[in-house]
Design a protein around this nucleic acid. Structure first.
Length: 550
DNA sequence: GCCGTTTTCGGCCCGACTGTTTTCAGTCG
């Protein structure tokens, strides 16, 4: 957890240094360090073995700061900076299109303390009086504030997946708590939840429970059947109460969703266990995450939930970045990490040349990488590294590397990283052009959304699914919890059209390679995918057959 | 700040897009 906190501190420091107009490269160094630390699993080991400086982007100075934080729980320079920069700046920076320069301008002219004040200024058209800000930016700010308010109330999977265990343990440890389970949208593994939701058996009064929570810094917000608390960190926690006798009913009902509960029908008596409810209806147990799936009960008439894809069915990852572009690890490290996961193969798909910020590969560097992989495959045993690329789909639908070169690769993932605002027809057409390309195997993160940060681009997903089926191009479930792209409704449609789905991590380091797949698998299960629907559930030989299909 | 076909300072620095402007600044992937 310390690496996550440090990552947050360093990225805040980068912003603050930018505010102070420090050297660009210094700012970048903090940003880079934040990025590295975000995904380090075992920072403590690097600290205890005094190997911090082996981490890329960590030098003498940042090493000292990490150690300072490790020893004292604070970083003096961070706190000093924090005292110099107005808090409103951080809120403003969360608005898309607003960077440090604009935020600083707004602050220096009007000195607002809260987003509410900024909102009033925008509504009164005071902001566009500032040079460099016009009506469009003013409008953008209003939209941004509204959406920030909305998002304040929501917790995305990337966040809750990291906090829920700790929170569950905390509640479990309270005296008088005799049983506890996650429930509601948390238990359904929804991509976004309104609050953490737990069901407990508590030996004592509700007042007593509330007192225990308040001692931990939680504030009681609402009390009806259950209780809603505000955590010191700002998120909400809902607690529902059950008895051992009615545990099954309560767990089933609070888990939901409503449509599923309705389909199962009225519970005529008390069930101590949820599984008995399903048994009493002659149904197999339906795991919570599947209960949101459209058509899950119909599916159960024909098949078994054990047919659905699981993480154990995944034979390899077909979208991984190495240090050749913007990844952190070498290809060999990635291969060894994949081997530990029990994979049969992985594919290296670095960015292509026009994505310059990500050090995208041009023809020459890609050829060198191909050679490196071939050599590595001669050295490694038990895992095959496939040669790949994440090639840019340009605005006109062409790719930024020649077909002749793509033909030499095993796995071509084609993705959109620019031109998010193209009109719907053009956006759809460019992706379909890529789908038609005989070398393209997979369309990466097909809708471009970033959960809670950026909506999908305007695109006809239905048409993309139809064309992907027609040209036998696979679509990706990008498992990165920031993306989850395609989302489950679309994947369900794709399944019905017979489109193959690749569940990839798009990992930029070994940690995410190991950690993120679960999120994509959950999406796939919510879309009722079975092994035969998933490209990377194939063994290497069948996969190769697919890759040669066009 | 980090890094080094490195030996300790000098290089690191994309480029499209948008919104503000009449030639550019700011943002962002």
């Amino acid at each position: 957890m310390i690496s996550l906190q440090l990552s947050r501190i360093f990225s805040e420091m980068a912003l603050m240094l930018e505010y102070k107009e420090e050297n660009f490269f210094k700012i970048n160094a903090y940003r880079q360090a934040a990025r590295i630390l975000r995904n380090i699993e075992d920072l403590e080991r690097f600290i205890s073995e005094d190997r911090l400086e082996e981490l890329p982007g960590i030098g003498k100075n940042l090493r000292e700061k990490i150690l300072e934080y490790y020893r004292t729980g604070r970083i003096a320079e961070y706190e000093k900076l924090k005292g110099e920069i107005p808090l409103i700046i951080f809120d403003l920076l969360k608005i898309p299109g607003i960077g440090v320069k604009t935020a600083k301008q707004i602050f220096e002219v009007y000195r607002p303390d809260t987003l509410d004040e900024v909102e009033s200024l925008a509504k009164a058209h005071k902001l566009k009086e500032i040079p460099g800000i016009g009506s469009k930016t003013e409008q953008q700010i209003l939209v941004g504030i509204a959406s920030a308010r909305e998002w304040q109330e929501k917790i995305p999977v990337s966040l809750y997946s990291r906090n829920q265990t700790e929170l569950l343990e905390l509640i479990k440890s309270l005296p008088g708590v005799e049983k506890v389970s996650s429930t509601g949208s948390l238990r359904l593994k929804e991509e976004i939840i309104p609050y953490y939701h737990f069901l407990i058996v508590f030996n004592g009064s509700k007042e007593k429970f509330s007192e225990l929570m308040e001692n931990l810094g939680f504030k009681l917000l609402e009390q009806q059947d259950g209780m809603l608390f505000l955590a010191p960190e700002g998120f909400k926690v809902k607690i529902d109460f059950a008895t051992f006798d009615s545990w099954g009913n309560k767990l089933f009902l609070t888990t939901g969703p409503e449509s599923f509960v309705k389909a199962i029908g009225v519970l005529e008596k008390s069930f101590s266990d949820e599984e008995i409810i399903f048994k009493s209806r002659g149904l197999p147990y339906v795991e919570p995450e599947l209960r949101t799936a459209e058509g899950v009960l119909e599916f159960l008439n024909e098949a078994d939930t054990t047919d659905l894809i699981t993480a154990a069915d995944i034979k390899g990852d077909l979208h991984i970045h190495s240090q050749h572009s913007d990844g952190i690890n070498s290809i060999k490290d990635l291969a060894l990490a994949a081997q530990k996961l029990g994979y049969e193969y992985i594919s290296i798909n670095d960015h292509s040349k026009s994505l310059t910020v990500a050090k995208g590969l041009d023809e020459e560097r890609l050829l060198a990488q191909i050679e490196e992989i071939e050599a590595l495959n001669r050295e490694l045993e038990g895992i095959t590294v496939l040669k790949g690329i994440e090639v840019e789909i340009l605005k006109d639908g062409s790719l930024d590397l020649p077909d002749k070169l793509l033909a030499q690769l095993d796995v071509v993932v084609a993705s959109v990283h620019t031109g998010f605002k193209l009109p719907r027809e053009e956006q759809t057409a460019r992706i379909i052009e890529a789908i038609k390309n005989e070398h393209v195997d997979i369309i990466g993160h097909p809708t471009g959304r970033l959960l809670g940060r950026r909506d999908q681009y305007d695109v006809d997903v239905e048409e993309i699914i139809v064309q992907a089926a027609k040209y036998s191009t696979a679509l990706e479930i990008n498992s990165s919890p920031e993306r989850l792209d395609l989302k489950d409704e679309y994947v369900n449609r794709a399944r019905q059209e017979g489109v193959l789905i690749a569940i990839n991590t798009d990992a930029h380091d070994t940690y995410r390679l190991a950690n993120d797949l679960q999120f994509g698998v959950t999406v796939a299960r919510k879309a009722l995918l079975t092994k035969k629907d998933v490209l990377n559930a194939k063994d290497l030989n069948s996969l190769k057959k697919f890759l040669r299909r066009k």
